[in-house]
Simulated scan of single mutants.
Amino acid sequence: MNTTFLFIGGPEIFIILLIVVMFFGADKLPEIARGLGKGMRQIKDATNDIKREINESAQEHGLDTNIVQDINKEVNDVKDNIDDLTGPIKRNR
Results as ranks from 00 to 15, higher is better:
Thr4Gln: 12
Ala33Arg: 05
Ile82Tyr: 10
Asn81Lys: 15
Glu60Ala: 14
Gly10Ile: 14
Gln59Glu: 14
Val75Tyr: 04
Ile67Arg: 13
Asn66Ser: 15
Lys79Trp: 09
Arg91Pro: 02
Thr65Asp: 05
Lys90Val: 11
Asp77Pro: 01
Ile71Phe: 08
Val21Phe: 01
Gly25Ile: 00
Ile32Lys: 00
Gly9Ala: 09
Asn72Tyr: 02
Glu12Met: 13
Arg52Trp: 08
Glu31Ala: 11
His61Met: 08
Phe24Glu: 02
Phe7Pro: 00
Asn72Gly: 01
Leu85Asp: 09
Glu74Gln: 11
Thr86Trp: 14
Thr4Met: 08
Leu36Asp: 02
Asn2Ile: 15
Asp70Arg: 15
Glu74Ile: 09
Met1Leu: 14
Arg41Tyr: 05
Thr65Gly: 13
Asn72Phe: 03
Asn72Ser: 03
Arg52Met: 13
Phe24Arg: 02
Leu29Lys: 07
Lys28Gly: 00
Val21Ile: 12
Thr4Pro: 00
Phe24Pro: 03
Pro11His: 05
Arg41Met: 06
Gly25Thr: 04
Met1Thr: 14
Ile15Ser: 09
Arg34Tyr: 05
Asp77Val: 01
Leu6Val: 07
Arg41Val: 03
Lys73Gln: 14
Lys73Gly: 14
Lys90Pro: 03
Ala26Phe: 13
Glu53Met: 13
Gly62Thr: 08
Pro88Arg: 12
Arg52Tyr: 13
Asn92Gln: 13
Phe23Gly: 02
Val21Asn: 04
Pro88Met: 08
Asp84Cys: 04
Asp49Arg: 06
Ile16Arg: 10
Leu63Arg: 05
Ala26Pro: 01
Gln59Cys: 06
Ile13Trp: 13
Ile50Ser: 11
Ile19Trp: 06
Asp77Lys: 06
Asn72Arg: 05
Arg91Gln: 14
Lys90Thr: 10
Ser57His: 06
Asp77Leu: 03
Ile16Pro: 01
Gly35Asn: 06
Asn55Trp: 01
Lys51Ala: 09
Asp83Val: 01
Asn81Phe: 09
Ile19Asn: 11
Phe24Asp: 02
Gly9Trp: 01
Ile67Asn: 08
Ala46Tyr: 06
Leu63Tyr: 12
Asp80Pro: 01
Ile16Thr: 10
Phe14Val: 15
Leu6Tyr: 06
Asp27Ser: 11
Asp45Trp: 04
Thr86Tyr: 15
Gly87Trp: 08
Ile67Tyr: 10
Asp77Arg: 05
Phe23Tyr: 09
Lys44His: 08
Ile54Phe: 13
Asn76Ile: 10
Asn92Ala: 13
Leu29Met: 13
Glu31Thr: 13
Thr65Pro: 07
Lys51Gly: 03
Gly87Leu: 10
Lys38Thr: 09
Asp64Ala: 14
Met22Glu: 11
Gln69Arg: 07
Ala46Val: 04
Ile15Trp: 02
Asp64Ile: 14
Asn81Ile: 11
Arg41His: 06
Thr47Tyr: 07
Asp80Trp: 07
Lys79Cys: 11
Ile71Asn: 00
Asp64Tyr: 12
Ile71Asp: 00
Asp84Glu: 14
Pro30Thr: 11
Arg52Thr: 15
Glu12Gln: 15
Gly62Arg: 07
Arg52Cys: 10
Phe7Glu: 10
Ile32Thr: 00
Leu36Asn: 04
Val78Pro: 03
Asp84Trp: 04
Asp84Tyr: 11
Asn66Ala: 15
Asp45Glu: 13
Ile19Val: 12
Gln42Asn: 12
Lys73Thr: 15
Glu60Leu: 14
Leu36Val: 12
Gly39Glu: 04
Gly62Met: 08
Glu31Arg: 09
